[in-house]
Amino acid sequence: MMMYALAAVLLGVGLYGLLVKRHLLKKVLGLLIVEHAVNLFLIQLGYIDGGIAPIRTAGEEAAAFVGNAVDPLPQVLVLTSIVIGLGLAMLMVALTLRIYQRYGSLDADRMSELKG
């Protein structure tokens, strides 16, 4: 339970950054932390005590492999999620730069007052 709680704390830290920070780049960092937290939680879900990687090696018996390997399904989801997260981070940084160029400010609070 401890490990799950730590993932929840990591998500809380990211949420705090998203809610409190006014600097847009800091908000981007907060979203990245939330992503990390979700990935961590999914990988933790698949773990079993003394688990080995879900990659069968040549000399290994099938029964021993099935008995010891961790759950591969969350790993697949997280693998795609990490790479999508990178694309997302680039898009967010691109939007941040464009907003700064357009408004000359990175204050999220002022952003909502500005029109046009």
């Binding site: 694309g87 680039m90 898009l91 940084v93 691109a94 730069l97 464009r98 700064y100 160029q101 357009r102 408004y103 000359g104």
Partner: peptide, 17 residues
Amino acid sequence: AGFIAVAVFEGAAGSEK
């Protein structure tokens, strides 16, 4: 391609205002 887009971008603040 995404990196190039972000890295090459040279917009100064408020230049598009």
